[in-house]
Each structure stands twice: as structure tokens, then as C-alpha cells.
């Protein structure tokens, strides 16, 4: 683990030894923040979700920037943000400037990502930047935080920035070895934590977590509760390398069919399926691995937080 101080609540809670949860917010093509703030407030209420990730143009789509909503959820929902930053759209000059700006706004966590290519998104003709890659971005952050300079060694006036940053890892990657070696390079560049892509396969997740142990960096395993059959189907078909178990897909389809016209009944049935799948899954991870916590990507599915996490202790003020 890096010797860097815990600047963020996320890192403080991990260092205190809590099994932590992070949530996920996805600002899309929106003009108002109501839903995002509502979702963030629901996370806060659980007292179990310490921070909320704010995504940066997932699938390469043109969405609201991630910095402003990160600031707003901290201000209006009083939950700490994990500001997701891809290197897809900004060169090193812009990234540096954004990080300094974020420090000014009180952002404490950054999740560094390469970012899905623009060719996958809704502006396919756009030029993808990738001036520096996500590992190099980690190096940039290490320098800004630990040494108080930019990549060229020019000093930041007023000292060093106080932030923690993480990287992602993909338990579904095949072949696995290059993925692990790549994570190793990021660890070498000072990441404080790792959040993983989602896994529905407990054995695969355990194996992956075991392999990551060598880095001695806290890992939050990604889980993705499925709000509807449609989302599950999309995930199964369109998210790289992820497959949703067939039984889960079937159960969701059936729940929607059986409760046609009955919204309440449908929600209850879908929530039950998710709780029955993910609660034991999370407990097993907590019990039999060294994972520091769970990154719960229940985007716009805030009603699940309370029932899903009710068995876990509250540790957030």
C-alpha cells in the first residue's frame, strides 16, 4: 500500500479497517441534477456507502462532465465523490488543470481510467485524445500529490495537492496475465485503491482478488445489481467481457412478465432477485477474501441500497 496519508473519507475508512461500500452516479445528457442528487442522498442515508463514483462519459458517449457533478454531490448531498477521469478527452495540460481545479473544489478521490474509445460512443467521428495513458496519469497524480510539481517539475504554488487516487482492474479479462501486469505498473505509480469492473461469478472474483493481493493495495470488488431485464440484457450483450448468469436473466424476465401492469409487484420481485443473488455474494467476498469493500454500481437503483446493505454495519457518520 502506498504510504500516502488518507486524505479522503474513503481511504480513511479503509485504513480504519471497515469493509467499505462505494456507489455510482452517472450524469448523462442532463440539464438538471435532481435525480443525481437524490440518488446520492439515498446513498448517504445508508451510512454504509462512504463515497459515490461519478462517471466520465461511459461507453464513449458525450455526457455532462464528471467534475461539476462530483462537486455538487459533495455540496448538496454531503457524500464524498470519487471523481472518475478518463484520459480519452483531455491531454496532459487539460488533465493537470482539471486536477488543480478539482483540488480547489474539495475533491478528494480520483479514479483514473483509460475510457471507452469515442468509436464506441455517440460521437464516433470525434478524435480520441489519449495524449497520456491512464498509468501515466497515475504518475502525474503521484507527482502532484507527493512532490507538488507538474510532470515537467514546475512547482505548484502553495504546496502539494491532497488527494487519493485509484485505478480499475477487470476480473473478466481474458487473457488475465497482461491485465495483472498492467495493474502492477499502476501500483508502481502510487495508486491508493483499486475498484474493479463487475463480476457475477464468485469463483472468478475470488481468484482475481487473490491475484491482486500481491500488490497490497485495497481492492473494492465491483458488483452490478440489475434494475431491469433490459439492463441485464444490455449488460450481457454490450459490456465487454461481462456475462450475466443465464438463471439471473431468466428470473428477471419472468419477474417482469409475471408482474405486467403491477409496478410495485415488479419492483418487489426484481429487488428480491437482486438481494438473493448479491447479498450472499457480498458476504462471501467479505468472509473469504481480503477485499477492502464493494463498489456497488446500482446506478439509478437507489431503492435497493437499504434492503441490500441492511445486514452490514453502519460506519459512516
Amino acid at each position: 500500500m502506498s504510504n500516502r496519508p488518507a486524505y479522503s473519507n474513503l481511504m480513511k475508512k479503509i485504513k480504519e479497517g471497515h469493509f467499505v461500500f462505494t456507489g455510482e452516479l452517472e450524469p448523462k445528457k442532463i440539464l438538471d441534477m435532481e435525480e443525481i442528487i437524490h440518488s446520492a442522498k439515498e446513498m448517504k442515508k445508508t451510512k454504509r456507502i462512504v463515497s459515490a463514483n461519478v462517471t466520465d462519459g461511459p461507453q464513449g458517449d458525450a455526457y455532462m462532465c464528471s467534475l461539476v457533478p462530483s462537486y455538487l454531490v459533495q455540496r448538496d448531498a454531503e457524500i464524498e465523490a470519487v471523481w472518475q477521469v478518463t484520459v480519452r478527452d483531455r491531454n496532459r495540460v487539460a488533465l493537470f488543470g482539471d486536477v488543480l481545479g478539482a483540488a480547489q473544489l474539495g475533491i478528494k478521490n480520483i479514479l483514473t481510467l483509460t475510457g471507452d474509445h469515442t468509436a464506441l460512443g455517440d460521437h464516433k467521428k470525434g478524435r480520441a485524445v489519449y495524449d497520456i495513458d491512464s498509468t501515466q496519469f497515475c504518475q502525474m497524480l503521484a507527482i502532484m500529490i507527493d512532490e507538488g510539481t507538474d510532470l515537467e517539475g514546475n512547482e505548484l504554488k502553495g504546496g502539494k495537492i491532497e488527494m487519493n487516487y485509484g485505478c480499475v482492474a477487470n476480473p473478466n479479462s481474458d487473457p488475465r496475465e497482461p491485465e495483472i501486469l498492467k495493474v502492477g505498473r499502476k501500483v508502481e505509480n502510487g495508486v491508493d485503491f483499486i475498484q474493479t469492473q463487475t463480476s457475477f461469478d464468485i469463483e472468478q472474483a475470488k481468484e482475481f482478488l487473490k491475484e491482486l493481493e500481491q500488490f497490497n493495495v485495497p481492492v473494492l470488488l465491483g458488483v452490478f445489481p440489475l434494475k431491469s431485464y433490459g439492463i441485464a440484457w444490455y449488460f450481457d450483450n454490450y459490456i465487454p467481457g461481462v456475462s450475466v448468469p443465464k438463471d439471473l436473466l431468466k428470473a428477471l424476465k419472468k419477474a417482469e412478465k409475471d408482474n405486467k401492469g403491477d409496478k410495485k409487484g415488479k419492483y418487489a420481485a426484481i429487488d428480491k432477485i437482486n438481494i438473493e443473488f448479491f447479498e450472499p455474494f457480498i458476504k462471501e467476498i467479505q468472509k473469504s477474501t481480503k477485499a477492502a469493500g464493494i463498489h456497488c454500481m446500482a446506478v439509478e437503483y437507489e431503492r435497493l441500497f437499504e434492503p441490500l446493505l441492511s445486514d452490514f454495519p453502519q460506519y459512516v457518520e
Binding site: A119, L120, D133, Q136, D174, E179, K182
Partner: peptide, 21 residues
């Protein structure tokens, strides 16, 4: 590499193939 990475692979690799294309 579609993203010109110096430290790949990225998370878009599936079964050894690239997300772009």
C-alpha cells in the same frame, strides 16, 4: 493500439480482441 497506449492493455480488451472495430 487504437488508444496509442504505452502501458496497455486497456479494459476494452475482450478475449484478446480490441473494443475498437
Amino acid at each position: 493500439c487504437a488508444k496509442h497506449l504505452s502501458n496497455g492493455p486497456c479494459g476494452g480488451m475482450v478475449d484478446g480482441m480490441c473494443e475498437v472495430g
